[in-house]
């Protein structure tokens, strides 16, 4: 199994967030708490569900993550874009 991180959108502003090692929601994938087996994954998903009930985040789900020397890397294009933002956009021109 790939390593798994938990991502969601923050309720108040919709921003992409990740469940962090500290148990908070962070806008950075780095520092995410990673699940290495099914049991750990279920624990993270349970924790995320508590955040849903607390109205902190919307629609959490697990994503595959690679742990490299340079840091964490998502494996799918969609998650890479969620993590780093639109490829090119007008406000960044």
């Amino acid at each position: 199994m790939y390593l798994k991180a938990i991502t969601a959108n923050r309720l108040r502003d919709g921003r992409v967030v990740y469940l962090s090692e500290a148990g908070n929601w962070s806008q950075s994938l780095e520092g995410s708490r990673l699940a290495r087996d099914e049991e750990e994954l279920q624990s993270l998903l349970d924790q995320a569900e508590v955040s849903v009930l607390r109205n902190e985040v919307v629609a959490p789900y697990a994503i595959d993550v690679l742990e490299l020397d340079s840091g964490y890397l998502t494996t799918r294009c969609r998650e890479e874009i969620r993590s780093t933002g639109p490829s090119r956009r007008t406000d960044a021109a």
């Binding site: 607390r54 919307v58 969620r82």
Partner: peptide
Amino acid sequence: LNGELNEDEFKPLRLMNGLYLQLHA
């Protein structure tokens, strides 16, 4: 925002007002 409505209840209401939840925001 204060939790009286959950996302399932709120989603159709926000969509009726043109508010989507997309990839980043």
